[in-house]
Design a binder for these strands. Structure first.
Lengths: 101, 101
DNA sequence: CAGGATCCGCGTGGATACTG
DNA sequence: CAGTATCCACGCGGATCCTG
């Protein structure tokens, strides 16, 4: 469910609940195409991680939120963030080889 | 770095440090091919998450361990595990739609 | 605005055979 | 045992065009 090039990135952005609109996500995630954004959102929705709310107006407005279960991922994403930050510290200490990739 | 079909699965298995050998991983991860196992391990190694130790003997023996930074991922993986467990609870309460996928 | 539809290249990953 | 080497299919993801 978390696989895919953009899933985690999208989830990270949806986290605080402040970013919800399709167009916002598009701006916040450089390099993603409309197709991919829509597709990954559909999959997240199908997996019960994200809910979609359509406002029937012109022009249309759609909001995406984390479901109850999606929000339960919060601690996990937080831990990943912390892990990423630790990398800097370890690099500073020269604790591991700089990857060539 | 965590992308790829097998990365997280491999990391989960390496976690307690009890499973280390190539052949063990092969048995523990049904469906993975030799190519993929080797490739993903190489990438994890290149990214500094896993260390490889070759014992120069016949037949050869290779052990994989998490590096210091790889071990720092532990809380994150734990949180993901907890998250997965919560799914059962939510399903039992009928709290979200069963995904069709 | 929020996408659907279509076309396409390229890389991922599977299967098989082989090796130090 | 712990991998390489090779071939190949498929589907991911990008680009572009179109629409309610």
């Amino acid at each position: 469910m978390l696989e895919g090039r953009w899933k985690l990135i999208i989830l990270f952005h949806l986290f605080d609940g402040k970013v919800q609109r399709y167009s916002d996500l598009e701006k916040l995630i450089p390099g993603i195409s409309q197709k991919m954004l829509a597709q990954q959102l559909r999959q997240l929705e199908a997996d019960g991680l994200v809910s979609r709310k359509l406002y029937p107006q012109v022009p249309p407005k759609v909001e995406y939120r984390l479901t109850e279960w999606g929000q339960a991922l919060c601690p996990a994403l937080d831990a990943i963030l912390k892990w990423a930050e630790q990398r800097e510290a370890l690099l500073a200490k020269g604790r591991f080889l700089t990857p060539t990739r």
